[in-house]
Design a protein around this nucleic acid. Sequence first.
DNA 1: CCAATAGTTCGGTATTTTGGAACAACGGTA
DNA 2: TACCGTTGTTCCAAAATACCGAACTATTGG
Lengths: 128, 128
Amino acid sequence: MSCYLHPATDDIRLPAVLAALGDPVRIAIVRALAAAEAGLNCSMAGPIENVARSTLSHHFRVLREAGVIWMVKKGVENINTLRRADLDGRFPGLLDQILRSSCADIGQDSASEPMAKPVEAHGALPSA
Amino acid sequence: MSCYLHPATDDIRLPAVLAALGDPVRIAIVRALAAAEAGLNCSMAGPIENVARSTLSHHFRVLREAGVIWMVKKGVENINTLRRADLDGRFPGLLDQILRSSCADIGQDSASEPMAKPVEAHGALPSA
DNA sequence: CCAATAGTTCGGTATTTTGGAACAACGGTA
DNA sequence: TACCGTTGTTCCAAAATACCGAACTATTGG
C-alpha cells in the first residue's frame, strides 16, 4: 500500500500547523486544495512561482508531517487532500479562519520583503 | 523616544504572523500577553523554560517584526503588548481563534517531538 | 523495451536558530 | 558622584533548516 507518514489526528500540534501555514508557498498550496473539489496532485496544487520541484516536494512534506494534508500515492502521482475533518476535530474553526484571513492577504507579495513601511513606537501604547 | 521598528498595520502579513506564532516559545509568550491585564516585560512574558536570554530576545524580535506585539522601552525594561486591534483590523477573528486553539494544545509538549504515533495512509481517503 | 511524466533523494550552499559572553542603559543607594 | 543589580541587546560561532540543481525511482503509454 502506497504510504507516506502522517501524524495521527491526536498528534497534530498547533505550532506545527501554524508553522506549516506560515509560508507563502505552503499557504498557497492549502488555498488551492481548499478551493478544489477533489484531491490535487503536487503539480496542480503547487504554485506556478519560481519554486524548484525539490523545494515543492519539501513543502508538501512539511504540510503532511504537520497533519495539514493527506498524501496518497496513486499511480505516478500523489493525490493531496486537506485534512479538514481532522483539523476541525483538533482545532475547531481554525482552518476556516485562516483561509478567510488569507483572502485578506492576497495580492501583497507577503513574501521576502524585509519590512515595507516601518513605523516607530509613539510614546503611548498603540491601537489599544 | 525609545523606539523599536514595527510594521505598519497595513504591512502585517499573514504568513509572517503564522510563522511567528508557529513556535512553542513564541505562542507561549503571546498567550501570556493575552492573559495579562497590562503589558508585560520580556522576563514576565517569556516562558520559564530553558531558553537563553539572547534567544528570548530573538523571539520577541520575531513577534515584533511580524506585527504581533508592540514593544516600548520603559526604563530598564521593555513593555510588550499584543497588537490586538491591529491584528483584528487586518485579520478579523484570527487572533482569538488561534488563542482558542492553543488552549486545545496545551499539555502536549508540542515541541521538538519528531512524530509520536505516526499513521499510515489507508487505501481510501482519510476522514473526508 | 524506450521515452515521458511525477516526485523523491542527494549534495552543497545560504539562511535561520540558538546560547554564551560581553556590552549598554536605567534605577536605586550611598 | 560612584557603584551595583537588573533588563535586555549585540556579537560570535555552532547547529539546524531551507533552497536549488542534478541524479534517481516509479509508473504510464506507445
